[in-house]
Simulated assay, not measured.
Amino acid sequence: MNQAVFLDRDGVINEVLTERVKFVNKPQDFYLLEGAGEGIYLLQQAGYKIFVVTNQGGVGLGYMKEKMLHSVHDEMQKKLRSYNAHIDAIAYCPHKPHENCPCRKPKPQMIHDLAEAWDIDLTQSFMIGDREPDIVAGKQAGTKTILVGARDQDKVEADLVFEDLLEAATYITSQIEI
Rank of each mutant, 00 (worst) to 15 (best):
A150M: 13
T123M: 08
V53N: 02
A169C: 13
M64A: 12
V52K: 00
E177H: 11
Y41K: 14
R9H: 05
D74C: 11
D119W: 12
L17N: 14
L122F: 04
K65D: 15
V156W: 09
E34N: 08
I178L: 15
I40V: 10
L166H: 05
K96T: 04
K65M: 12
D121K: 01
D29T: 08
Q77D: 12
P27A: 02
I40F: 05
Q45W: 04
L165E: 04
K144G: 01
K155I: 14
L80I: 05
G129I: 12
G138F: 04
V136D: 03
T145G: 03
L43F: 00
E116R: 14
D154S: 09
V53Q: 04
Y48R: 06
T170R: 09
K67Q: 08
L114E: 10
A4Q: 06
V16D: 13
D134C: 03
Y63P: 06
D119N: 13
T170M: 08
G138K: 00
D88T: 11
E38W: 00
D119P: 02
E177F: 06
Q109E: 15
V136R: 01
F23T: 12
S71H: 08
K22R: 13
A169W: 10
D8A: 12
H73I: 10
P97H: 08
L147I: 10
V156M: 10
L43C: 03
L160S: 01
Q45M: 13
S125W: 00
G39V: 03
A115V: 01
Q124H: 15
Q44H: 03
M68S: 09
M76T: 03
E177R: 07
C101S: 05
V21C: 12
L160H: 11
P27K: 11
N25L: 14
K22P: 01
N14D: 04
R131W: 07
N25R: 14
C101G: 11
M76A: 07
N55C: 13
D164Y: 01
I135Y: 03
L165Q: 00
Y83L: 09
E75K: 14
D154E: 15
F30K: 08
Y92F: 10
K65E: 15
T18R: 12
I146C: 00
Y83T: 02
S82I: 09
K79I: 07
L69M: 13
N2V: 09
K155C: 06
G35S: 12
E157T: 10
A169F: 07
Y63I: 07
A91T: 14
V5P: 05
I111K: 01
